[in-house]
Amino acid sequence: MLFQNNPIDLTTLPQLEHIQMKSLSPAYLKVSYLGTTIFFIMLAIILMAVRFFAEFDIPFRVELGIVGGWLLLLVLSLWHTYEDFQIQGFAIRERDLTYRSGVFFRSTTVIPYNRIQHAEVKQGPIERRFNLQRLEIYSAGGDGSDLYIPGLPGNRADQLKDYIIEKAGKHEQ
């Protein structure tokens, strides 16, 4: 095939910014809250165990500080979970898939369908309770080039996976 090198007007290219990002299922926010809370409860249990079995005395002020720190971190984490949920979003276009995340360090990753290696649907125990699925999409790029889209309701992830696999197959020619 001859290589064609026509000049391209950049303004006519499809722009990612013009499409609306779809946010994740609201149930996923609950799952995230639950995950964060469970983590902090475990932490509290470990701290209490240390307190209980410790053979040295812990001053009351230090105890108060640890409890305060635990509370502060819990609140901050819950806030972060909420903000993260607001930002997380994905977009499906004709030829590629986009995922955005990150409260502080924001990143938007795009994988064209003709570069997808394989896709997987996963579901953890909590997610199953809330009827959520997680879609994982792998490209041949190294770390950080794979997409994980959590919080897809019902069997949406299965549908998406089939759609993507079909698209990926079609582009191979």
């Binding site: 502080f104 360090f105 924001r106 990143s107 938007t108 990753t109 795009v110 994988i111 064209p112 570069r115 490209s139 041949a140 790029g141 950080g144 080039s145 997409l147």
Partner: peptide, 11 residues
């Protein structure tokens, strides 16, 4: 040869 593109922004 590109497999995926990521745009990143720090605060």
């Amino acid at each position: 040869k590109v497999q995926s593109v990521t745009l990143k922004q720090s605060p």
